[in-house]
Amino acid sequence: MDDQTRTDPRLLLLAPGDSVFVLRGQIAAGEDIFVAGCRVHVPVALGLGHKIARRAIGPGEKVLKYGASIGSARTGIALGEHVHLHNLQSDYTATYSLDASRSGADDTQEQVRP
């Protein structure tokens, strides 16, 4: 594979024109991975199904997955950046999450089997 396209095998491209890859394996916090030929530092752990930018995406630009728009970029998104609630918004209805509430909660009370 030439250096221009070298991409970590855990990143899955669903359609040729997509601006994001989908994770089919986990990435640990602090890993350096290759995305479209560029070495990128991943600061936080990312689970299966999360998205990473395949190229630089401008503010307001449509983000493409499955070859279709999944919403608009809230901000500029750099190649290799995690694409999620902080930088992507729906063009239909706002997304509800428990992130703000969870940051103040004691998650150790919830047991998760490995």
Binding site: V22, L48, H50, K51, A68, I70, H84, L88, D91, D99
Partner: peptide
């Protein structure tokens, strides 16, 4: 959202 889905149109597709 915890599972990586960001928007309703992404979930829809």
């Amino acid at each position: 959202a915890d599972g990586g889905l960001t928007t309703i149109e992404e979930k829809s597709l």
